[in-house]
Design a protein around this nucleic acid. Structure first.
Length: 260
DNA sequence: CATCCTGTTGAGGA
DNA sequence: TTCCTCAACAGGAT
């Protein structure tokens, strides 16, 4: 569940269903998923308290705890959170379980073990220390052009660099560039101001619409490139045969007719 | 059996 | 300083 829209959907779900429920038990099944703290520290920060806020920055979710700590969660490639009742089905590859006093359960599952949880008491300082850039959904057009437009490398690599802008991964980078009509391996500094402006507008429109539709697990618009990934299909807009190529080591899908 | 993959990190090099 | 590639991390799908 990895990119910004999926995490934003998760944030909304957690805001609705995970807040103000007393945490009675903490079961860290995989201690290696906890960074920068001991398992006992995690229990002390959570047990007997409740989540009182939930925010997101880029691909990181922050669950505010009534103890004052924030639980930062990164989902890696496949991580997700499940909420289920007592005796309900626990997801496969569960790495951390919280038992609520009301009998419900909260589980962080992460098949490939590329995600992690971490405690911080200052989100802004945490983001600085991790070198996470501004969130893609709230970054203004001028700052976007300044940060992205100066890069020498491929525009797709700049969009995916979390220190430059936070939240975009391989799939949405392709989607954004497709709708903006830009080839993914164009050098970022080749883009003029109108192109950067268009790219910024498409970036926010696509991320926002995807988040509103529930991300990968929802129903993304039929005209999106997303549905054509994984096969040698045709462009959903013009019908031209799609291309794939490696950009920054990642497989990229594009329409050679729509994107230049 | 081989290859691919929604992400990040560190090493090594241009 | 900046940016690139590669390998590694794990496990499941194709």
């Amino acid at each position: 569940m990895p990119e910004l829209p999926e995490i934003e959907s998760l944030r909304r779900e957690q805001a609705e269903h995970a807040l103000n429920r007393r945490i009675a038990g903490v079961d860290l099944r995989d201690p290696e998923r906890l960074r920068g703290a001991r398992p006992d520290d995690l229990t002390a920060a959570l047990s007997g308290f409740h989540f009182d806020s939930v925010t997101r920055h880029g691909k990181i979710l922050f669950l505010g705890v009534s103890s004052g700590w924030k639980l930062a969660i990164h989902f890696g490639m496949n991580g997700h959170i499940a909420l289920y009742g007592e005796g309900g089905a626990e997801p496969e590859h569960t790495r951390l379980v919280l038992d609520f006093a009301d009998g419900g359960r909260w589980a962080f599952a992460d098949m490939r073990r590329l995600g992690w949880v971490e405690l911080t008491d200052d989100i802004a300082a945490y983001l600085r220390s991790q070198e996470v850039g501004p969130d893609a959904l709230t970054l203004d057009a001028g700052s976007f052009a300044k940060r992205v437009g100066g890069k020498r490398g491929a525009i797709k690599s700049a969009l995916m660099d979390q220190a430059t802008i936070a939240g975009i991964g391989n799939v949405y980078a392709d989607e954004i560039l497709f709708h903006a009509g830009i080839i993914p391996d164009r050098p970022a500094h080749d883009l003029d101001d109108p192109a950067l402006n268009r790219l910024h507008g498409e970036m926010q429109a696509i991320l926002r619409e995807a988040a509103d539709r529930g991300g990968f697990h929802g129903e993304l618009p039929a005209c999106w490139l997303y549905h054509r990934r994984g096969d040698t299909g045709h462009c959903p807009v013009c019908g031209h045969t799609l291309n794939t190529r490696q950009v920054g080591g990642r497989t990229s899908y594009l329409c050679p007719a729509c994107q230049t």
